[in-house]
Design a protein around this nucleic acid. Structure first.
Lengths: 231, 231
DNA sequence: CGGGATGTTGAGAATCTTCAAGTCACGTGG
DNA sequence: CCACGTGACTTGAAGATTCTCAACATCCCG
């Protein structure tokens, strides 16, 4: 493995503004690895030995119920920490993390956590900030699932995805990684059939363009109206 | 206000095993207050100036959507921290906290947080442990809402309530605070009508006994079977 | 070029909500 | 102490949303 470059993490909240010496110290505790699309970074129930920072790519975090239903907990974007089981006082990972595209990941052993928190001001804060943000996200999702119909939930989810991981293309904004109807269903608590029907209707109405493992939003404002149930 | 007694918090995780001097120090930063049933401890959107520990009673945490729907995020039990906005890096409270019964609450100003974390080993950990546990709870709830039918969700919710806040009575276990059908509906993402119908059916089947603002589980094992969809 | 994964669409069924109408319990004030 | 009013609860009937089942179309990868 090549020596890790400071520029990898210089821009990341929690490491921003560190001295070169501190950056080197942070990197000396970590190691970088590549995961091919569909590779598992960690598995639900597995003993949590490390935590991670996504340097590039997109990671899907999936929980499986005892009955075998899958629910996508979230997508991780570049620059985000994940697999923070140790910071929650957990000894195992509560979900699978799967590379949605080819990914580069920094890994720290749990044993580095105390060290980092002690020596890097702001690192612990960044980790807990991340957890706090996820608690709020998850709570919003509970509210959506509790109070909104399927079409609104899908609209909110698609808008969130393009906002967080959108890439500008000729006629709109495209979600930056391959995503199936089934994936969207697992994020919104519905079935791929309903997702397909609704996306087809939206395409008919000129709000989105679909495609295999692809969603392009062509009329974000129109979608927003649907999300707010004011079509 | 009378001087706060060390015994108030001596048993609480995060304060357990502290010296008398440390306990006094923790209490000197706090003040205790009483809230009558239905009193608001803090309100959604209000600037978060303090965080709290519930000494006795039960607190309902409620979020309201822009459209006016209410969702009960959780109930707080005796000995739990709540209103931890500052630990999430938030400047306002994300929900209402309402006394479900008469309550006694310890309050610390946010300014005490850094102090407590520095001087009391384990305090910061306890706060973040609490947040971590809530993230996991909330995620389980997303899974339930996504994959289970209403009857199972209500069964899980009622079982969780009796487990966390149950009081043994003659013919079963009763939820230890007044709870309406509407409350249960707001915890499970359904309507009070559906909750009422299902509780009536369970009563018919001898699993529970109902009553005004009351639920007594008489056959926890039978309810568990319903929760797992194996009636 | 075959086959598995992905996506579409129709029809029927099931669950759950909505609307409606009431009953019941409890606390308050006369 | 009783009448009354309000909040809590119940139950029926109709309707809507969404799921399930089924069949087929399509696309990509090897």
């Amino acid at each position: 493995m090549p020596a890790l470059d400071r520029s990898l993490i210089g821009e990341i909240p929690g490491f921003a503004g560190l001295s070169e010496a501190d950056l080197d110290r942070v990197l000396s505790l970590a190691h970088a690895s590549r995961f091919e699309k569909d590779a598992t970074i960690f598995a639900q129930g597995e003993e949590a030995h490390s935590f991670f920072l996504l340097l590039s790519g997109h990671v899907r975090v999936v929980k499986t119920t005892p009955e075998g239903h899958q629910v996508i907990a979230r997508y991780i974007n570049e620059g985000e920490l994940f697999g923070l089981a140790i910071f929650l006082g957990r000894s195992d990972y509560p979900a699978d993390a799967v590379a949605a595209v080819d990914c580069v990941v920094l890994t720290w052993p749990n044993s580095a956590a105390a060290e980092l928190q002690k020596t890097i001001p702001g690192f612990g804060g960044a980790a807990y900030q991340t957890i706090g943000a996820r608690l709020q996200d998850t709570q919003s999702r509970v509210m959506e699932l509790s109070t909104q119909q399927v079409e609104q939930r899908i609209a909110h989810t698609v808008l969130r995805l393009v906002r967080q991981s959108g890439r500008k293309v000729a006629d709109g904004i495209e979600i930056d990684f391959p995503i199936t109807r089934q994936d969207i269903a697992e994020m919104t608590g519905t079935t791929l059939h309903t997702v397909s029907r609704i996306l087809s209707a939206w395409e008919e109405a000129g709000l989105v363009r679909g495609g295999r493992q692809k969603v392009i939003v062509t009329d974000p404002h129109g979608l927003m109206l649907i999300a707010e149930h004011r079509r």
